[in-house]
Simulated assay, not measured.
Amino acid sequence: MSAGEKNPSCQSIFDSRRSSLMLTILTECTRNPEIKEKITENGAHLRKMISEAGGISSDDQEGQYRILCVMAMYLGMSISNIFTPVENRELMTKILAQAETCILPFCGDKGSKATVS
């Protein structure tokens, strides 16, 4: 549940083929209700897994919004990779871990925690 080399899903956001496929699927969601329903179900399942991993209850509104922020961050990075490929993956992975730790304190590498002023 953290960015970094230990998490292969983090590395997959830098794969332009995966990014293009994700954009195609998301575009299809606007036209096909069955695909939208499946993507919505998968998103709910992912939120539940993150909630359980972090001990965030379903009625913790702030916690649930924090999860949505992290999910949106990774989705956005994946899509933006199509237009602006990340050249320094190691640095971007470190930055993502820092952002995770700030948004969801139980995530990320605690040693790379970003400072918030």
Score class of each variant (00 low, 15 high):
Q61R: 09
H45T: 14
I39Y: 02
K38M: 15
N88L: 13
A53V: 03
D59C: 12
T84R: 03
L75D: 02
G54Y: 01
L68P: 00
A44H: 07
L75P: 02
I56A: 02
S51T: 02
R89M: 12
I67L: 03
G76P: 03
I50E: 01
Y65G: 02
M77E: 15
H45G: 13
Y65I: 15
L68Y: 05
I56D: 00
D59M: 06
L46Q: 12
G54E: 04
I82W: 01
E62Q: 13
A72L: 13
S51N: 06
M49A: 15
S58R: 14
R89L: 08
S80Y: 10
I79P: 00
N88F: 06
E87P: 02
V70E: 00
N88A: 07
S58T: 12
F83P: 05
S58Q: 14
F83Y: 10
N88D: 15
D60E: 01
M71A: 12
L46C: 07
S58L: 12
N81R: 10
G43N: 13
I79S: 06
M49C: 09
G54T: 13
I39Q: 06
N88P: 05
Y74V: 00
Q64L: 04
Y74E: 05
C69Y: 06
R66C: 12
S51W: 00
S57N: 04
R47I: 04
N88V: 05
H45F: 09
L75F: 14
I67Q: 00
I50S: 00
Q61C: 11
D60Q: 11
M73T: 10
V86K: 01
A53S: 10
I56M: 03
A53L: 07
R66W: 01
R47V: 06
M73V: 10
H45M: 12
S80V: 10
Y65M: 13
M77T: 11
S80K: 15
E41Y: 10
E52V: 14
L46E: 14
G76K: 05
H45K: 15
M73H: 04
P85A: 03
F83M: 05
T40G: 09
M77S: 10
R89T: 10
T84H: 13
G43L: 14
N81F: 00
I82S: 09
A53H: 08
L46I: 14
E87I: 06
A72Y: 11
G76D: 03
Q61H: 01
A72H: 13
Y74I: 05
T40I: 02
G76C: 08
D60V: 01
G63L: 06
R47G: 06
M71Y: 09
A44G: 02
I56Q: 02
R89E: 15
E41K: 15
N88G: 04
G54D: 05
N88K: 11
G54R: 03
Q64E: 11
K48P: 02
G63M: 01
A44N: 10
G43V: 08
P85I: 01
I67V: 07
N42F: 10
R89A: 10
G76N: 14
M73Y: 10
E41G: 09
A53D: 08
R66V: 08
V70C: 12
E52Y: 06
E37V: 06
Q64G: 05
G54H: 04
I56C: 06
A72K: 04
